[in-house]
Amino acid sequence: MIRFVIKRLLVAIPTLWAVLTTVFILVRVVPGDPTMVILGDQASEAARAALREKLGLGKPILAQYIDFMTQVLHGDLGRSLATNRPIVDDVLAVLPWTIELTLASLVVGAVIGIPLGVLAAEKRDGFADWFARIFSLAGVSFPAFVSGILLLLAFSVELRWFPVISTAKSDDWFGRLRALVLPSINLGLLMVAYVTRVTRSGMLQALGEDYVRTARSKGLGRRLVVWRHAFPNVLVPVVTVVGLYLGVLIGNAVLTEIVFNRPGIGKLIVTALNQRDYTLLQGLMVVSAFAIVIANILTDLTYGLVDPRVKTA
């Protein structure tokens, strides 16, 4: 297992290098003079030259590349153009909010999606199956800002169970958890939809497999056959989907963060775009790319846990 982990981490190094290089190139091939974009077309030539100097854009491209890589490897993403604060500080300030929202949505997706998918497969074409299919279709097609506002109206404004604005002090754990409930349900609906679908189709296949017949031939009851023999074989596709959509979740978090007024990476990206904060954007791209690479590594490591055939491969 430890060799598998080390191997997987080593494979991640070239991936991260490629990601960083792509971010570097992307930012520099955007047409137009970046100083023009940042300062506007009314800026004086002197101001633009000063900014160019500050951004290091006067240097040869290779020197810029080496500077950029050295900075990133030292954990330095530069300073924000808009606020002049270190970008790393800005990111670290909101990162816990994003992580807790993403993880909570994952939990919502798994806790609702897996039983729903299993039940749908077990009672194929029955009531539970139709409910699961309609629910997962709605989950995929319902825009997050609509479902978010509906959740707020129902549970915060009418029932007053949860706060309308999700910012709570970080030392107030109960308040923070309570504020997390609605946003994570809202973001988790998408996850529920995907997890339900993949669990259902995986279970339909698994329940028809020979080893399920073997399990039944031992006299095992329905519950053991489904949960002990069929379900573990569905974990690999479920983990794949969860891992893949982790990236999608980070992107989708923007809408949820805005509707529930939560800080987070998504909201920071929108701020950077609005303020044409080009260095902040570059830093956020790096952070998002790292997050997705880490999610992929975790997914691969989970394969090793759920499928004995992966470990030895």
Binding site: D210, T214, R228, H229, D307
Partner: peptide, 12 residues
Amino acid sequence: FQEPMTSLNPVL
């Protein structure tokens, strides 16, 4: 059963 390759559960 006829198929020993598929009749055992791969994850147990």
